[in-house]
Simulated assay, not measured.
Amino acid sequence: MPVPPVSRRERKKAATRQAIGDAALQLFLERGYDQVGIRDIADAADVSTATVFKHFSGKEALVFDQDEDRESELIAAVRQRAPGQSFLDALQQHVLDTWLSIAAHPQRAEFVSLVESTPVLRAYAERMWTRHTDSLSAAIADEIGVDPDNLACVALARFVLDIPTLARGRQDPRAAVEEIFGILAHGWKPPREPSAP
């Protein structure tokens, strides 16, 4: 089925959002999060403060400007997975496709330093993915035919959503993501002590 063309209005809206997000991140990296106000961001993006708030719910959201479609993408990973693919495999691929590209971004070190040095951003980052727990657990529950508030589905969704935080800072992020999904799929086993030579 062909994808309908994006209207000029939608392209302009997306370009404005991108310009605001880019201006905000640049200012935050240059001056620090607490030293930048919404007026500074609006001026740098050449828009009004009302336009900033039309596109972003608050100052924290400006740092994480790619978060808008995360929930629908998570649900699509479960519901629109390939025939025969388990929803855990589909979610693993989704996390690898989305999070690893962010982890490899050239400004990643500066961005992480900004987030880690700003308590309000650290807290927001922790909540950012996990706030989708209810929607993701309902999609999983629907796929296996149980009640939407099934505790096993809620726990599984929460663990999946915590994976980027758990894998952050690991030497091999891909291996960390795969190991955690392996635990979710096959259960936890105690690590073995290395054999003595």
Rank of each mutant, 00 (worst) to 15 (best):
Asp89Gly: 15
Ser137His: 03
Arg39Gly: 09
Gln93Tyr: 11
Ala123Gln: 11
Asp142Lys: 08
Leu100Val: 10
Ala24Gly: 05
Thr165Trp: 07
Pro119Trp: 14
Ala125His: 01
Ser113Val: 10
Glu71Asp: 11
Ala175Val: 02
Glu178Ala: 13
Val47Lys: 00
Thr16Ile: 13
Leu74Arg: 02
Ala109Ser: 11
Arg79Cys: 06
Pro148Thr: 05
Ser101Met: 15
Val146Gln: 09
Arg8Trp: 10
Ala103Pro: 00
Trp129Val: 03
Pro197Ala: 04
Phe111Tyr: 07
Asp149Trp: 10
Leu25Lys: 04
Leu156Cys: 12
Val47Asp: 00
Ala45Leu: 05
Gln66Met: 15
Ala14Trp: 05
Leu100Trp: 05
Asn150Ile: 08
Asp40Lys: 12
Ala76Val: 08
Pro164Ala: 11
Gly187Met: 07
Ala82Trp: 07
Thr16Ser: 09
Ala42Asn: 02
Asn150Tyr: 10
Val3Gly: 05
Thr165Asn: 10
Arg31Cys: 14
Arg108Ile: 15
Pro4Trp: 15
Val78Glu: 01
Val63Leu: 06
Val3Cys: 09
Tyr124Cys: 03
Ser113Thr: 14
Phe111His: 04
Ser86Gln: 06
Val112Ser: 12
Ile75Asp: 01
Val3Ser: 12
Leu25Gly: 01
Thr51Asn: 01
Asp172Asn: 14
Ala45Arg: 01
Phe181Glu: 00
Arg17Asn: 01
Pro173Tyr: 03
Gln93Cys: 11
Asp142Cys: 10
Pro106Val: 10
Leu27Ala: 12
